[in-house]
Write a protein that binds this DNA or RNA. Structure first.
Length: 264
DNA sequence: ATGGTGGGCAACCCA
């Protein structure tokens, strides 16, 4: 089973690149973030045309939005709360019907948090911290089993998840309060599946800003996108592919797609 | 210290 996660930064604008992701990675399941399309304007025929007869979407106008496309049957999992009571379409969950039994799949888009790393001065940063606190509390209260959590978590927790740990200490996405909360969320029942494959002393990024002349030359990346699995699925982990070449495709997202393989 | 580039969608919001 191959599951892809990708912050597509507008589903409608990048349907062609989504097709390219399908050709490059042949995923069984695709989790998207920042679809930026309300449900009533979702391109209804696109998933089936790409080979995904099953899909779930939770979108809104202009901002946020998540979707899961699947080749394998799944049912919606509506158990989670409305995070921060904002109804801002940052999470969709499904239960996948796999050969080894049901597996829960969570697709998250965590608030980016604005520019100023001060929850008093910056409500977007306060929202981000509260969102991660809520998610950690939820999974602590309802310990996950046979679960996969993916998405744009907008936090790069490790020193080598950013191009310069020293220079990003006070940059939102790599601040101590965010990292502490992300670690608490992870500890609520998950293992970092990306770092299962790539040792923590090795640089690993999933996002490169649009605001660089040459993203590859400067390589000022961050690992904002994550794949977590519950410990009971660790023995099923088979591989990780970060499709860095997609950052060079015409009209790219600033995030690259990545695939996790599991023997399910 | 600053501003750099994107998307959505019609003025600035957000990343």
């Amino acid at each position: 089973m191959r599951i892809v996660t990708w912050n597509i930064n507008s589903l409608r604008l990048r349907l062609g690149l989504l097709e390219r992701v399908v050709a490059a990675l042949a995923p069984d399941v695709i989790c998207l973030q920042e679809t930026k399309v309300p449900d009533e304007l979702f391109p209804e025929q696109a998933p089936a045309r790409l080979g995904y007869p099953h899909h779930l979407r939770r979108g809104m106008k202009s901002y946020n939005g998540v979707a899961i496309l699947s080749r394998v049957p799944m049912r919606p999992d509506d158990g989670a709360p409305d995070w921060c009571l904002k109804d801002d379409r940052r999470h969709v969950a499904a239960v996948l019907d796999t050969a080894s039994g049901p597996v829960a799949l969570h697709d998250f888009y965590v608030p980016a948090g604005g520019d100023v790393p001060d929850p008093v001065a910056n409500p977007k940063y306060a929202h981000k911290l509260a969102f991660v606190d809520e998610a950690a509390a939820y999974f602590t209260a309802y310990p996950p089993l046979r679960s996969i959590l993916v998405g744009d978590l907008n936090i790069a927790p490790l020193e080598h998840d950013v191009w310069s740990h020293r220079q990003l200490r006070d940059v939102v996405s790599h601040t101590e309060p965010e990292i502490a909360r992300l670690n608490a969320w992870l500890a609520s029942g998950f293992v970092d599946a990306m770092r299962h494959f790539v040792p923590p002393e090795e640089k690993l990024y999933s996002w490169w800003s649009y605001r660089n002349r040459d993203w590859r030359a400067s390589n000022r990346g961050r690992r904002l996108d994550h794949v977590w699995v519950t410990p009971d699925l660790v023995p099923a982990l088979r591989g990780l592919t970060v499709l860095q070449e997609a950052r060079d495709w015409p009209g790219p997202s600033d995030h690259v797609p990545m695939a996790i393989d599991l023997d399910l």
